Simulated scan of single mutants.
Amino acid sequence: MAQGRGSARGTGSGSTAAALALVLLCALLRGEFAESAVYTVGDRGGWSFNTAIWPNGKRFRAGDVLVFRYDARAHNVVPVSAAGYSSCSAPGGARAC
Rank of each mutant, 00 (worst) to 15 (best):
M1C: 01
M1V: 00
R5N: 01
G6N: 12
S7Y: 01
R9V: 07
R9E: 07
G12L: 11
G12D: 09
G14H: 06
S15K: 11
S15M: 13
S15E: 12
A17N: 08
A18S: 13
A21E: 07
A21I: 03
L22P: 00
L22A: 15
L24G: 03
L25S: 13
C26Y: 00
A27C: 07
A27T: 08
L29A: 15
R30S: 14
F33A: 12
A34P: 01
S36I: 04
S36D: 07
A37G: 01
V38W: 09
T40D: 07
G42H: 05
G42S: 01
D43I: 07
D43K: 14
R44H: 05
G45I: 03
G46T: 02
W47K: 09
S48D: 13
N50K: 13
P55Q: 10
P55A: 10
N56M: 05
N56K: 11
K58R: 15
R59W: 04
R59N: 09
F60I: 04
G63H: 06
V65F: 06
V67P: 01
F68V: 05
Y70L: 08
Y70T: 04
A72K: 10
A72Y: 08
R73N: 07
V77D: 01
V78N: 06
V78I: 15
P79D: 10
V80E: 06
V80Q: 14
A82L: 11
A83R: 11
A83Q: 14
Y85N: 10
S86I: 10
S86T: 14
S86V: 12
S87W: 05
C88I: 12
C88L: 08
C88K: 12
S89H: 08
P91I: 08
G92I: 08
G93W: 02
G93C: 03
G93I: 14
A96V: 05
A96K: 06
C97R: 14
C97T: 15
